[in-house]
Design a binder for these strands. Structure first.
Length: 318
RNA sequence: CGCGGGGUGGAGCAGCCUGGUAGCUCGCAAGGCUCAUAACCUUGAGGUCGGCGGUUCAAAUCCGUCCCCCGCAA
């Protein structure tokens, strides 16, 4: 027995599971649906990696601007898929859409549902300081990330792990999970476990502003936020110093320092070459910093070149 | 042809507008001081000022062009 599978996905999160299915001899991938190409800096167009992957295996690719239109639905219906495997696709799927595959549409989600339902589960797991996370595969229902779960794999979040790094690890686990679940669907042995509604938390799409650091948070919260926002949208703060306009700075990496006496939040001190910033509770050492228009640099180099005064502090844009 | 910042000894920056001796904070090396040092003092090495072309008596600086890095926007 072999299933006909259609892939829907866009981000790097989708690549490992999609590749696993494409390389599998057990099933047949009959099509791939992904977001239209987007433009990048300058004139350059971002290469859609899912498209490249699908073309590598000579699979037909669809890139509808809106996936729920009559035309789009018709095109996908013609593939006569048994299963849709969805990962980081980026568009809401309407009921008529979900009705197309014989066995249903299944989504790969980057957290242990029902925790962190929404667009940014990986970032939220780190942001909220979770020790454990994982990937969950569930059957898609019209309501957001609410369908019955058919499999999950757990993993511990590493102390220094960023969203980007965790995302790659979860993507690899997704590949494993997908093969397992699809196999069970084929044999009709899959177990559908409803989500415990009382445990639901939300992980809405990360906005640019979510990267802005609020220095009245605890040092631990700031450090989690920095890792959660890496590599996007990146943790951001502004360097304020007397007589100069604030410099927007990205903080790619910080570490939590020892507890210390209370200082005004955002205050910067130089201690033994470290850039120490006071938080609402405790302080963090800034390890790397990237002023606007510049490449990332060691905090020590930044302090050397930018002539930090005693009054210098980090804060909001104004 | 989306907008903008940047390229100056090993690192980070100033100098450029208003052409005329290569500067600052560090790092590195040697020596000194000290019970001691990621402290302090002295000395030293290390630069085709991103590339090419132009203007000029003279270009890091002005003009043209190309290459590379980065932020924003999407």
């Amino acid at each position: 027995m072999s299933l006909r599978i259609t892939l829907l996905g866009t981000g790097t999160f989708a690549l490992p599971p999609f590749r696993a299915l494409l390389e599998s001899t057990e099933h047949e991938v009959v099509g791939a649906c992904t977001q239209p190409d987007r433009t990048g800096r300058g004139h350059h167009r971002h290469v859609n990696q899912v498209k490249v992957l699908a073309e590598e295996f000579n699979i037909p690719v669809f890139q509808p601007e809106r996936v729920n239109t009559i035309e789009s639905l018709g095109a996908l219906r013609e593939l006569q898929a048994d299963v849709f495997v969805v990962a980081a696709y980026g568009q809401i799927l309407k009921p008529e859409f979900l009705a197309i595959p014989r066995l249903g549409a299944f989504n790969l989600h980057g957290s242990l549902l029902p925790r962190h339902r929404g667009a940014a589960p990986v970032q939220y797991a780190i942001w909220k300081g979770d020790e454990q996370t994982g990937v969950t595969m569930f059957q898609i229902e019209p309501a957001l990330d609410s369908g019955p779960m058919v499999g999950k794999i757990e993993t511990n979040i590493q102390p220094l792990e960023t969203s980007g790094e965790l995302m790659l690890r979860l993507a690899d686990l997704s590949a494993e999970l997908t093969l397992s679940v699809v196999h069970q669907l084929d044999l009709a042995t899959a177990v559908f476990e409803p989500q415990d509604v009382s445990q639901v938390t939300l992980a809405p799409k990360i906005r640019k502003e979510d990267g802005n650091i609020d220095w009245t948070q605890t040092a631990v919260q700031v450090e989690c936020q920095v890792r959660a926002m890496q590599p996007w949208p990146k943790a951001v703060t502004w360097l304020h110093s007397a007589g100069r306009k604030p410099i927007r700075c990205i903080l790619p990496q910080v570490e939590v320092g020892a507890e210390s006496s209370a200082c005004r939040s955002g205050r910067i001190a130089l201690e033994d070459g470290n850039l120490v910033v006071s938080c609402g509770s405790g302080h963090v050492n800034v390890l790397k910093i990237q002023p606007e228009g510049k490449a990332a640099m060691e905090a020590r180099d930044f302090a050397n070149g930018y002539g930090l005064s005693d009054a210098a502090h980090f804060g909001g844009a104004t």
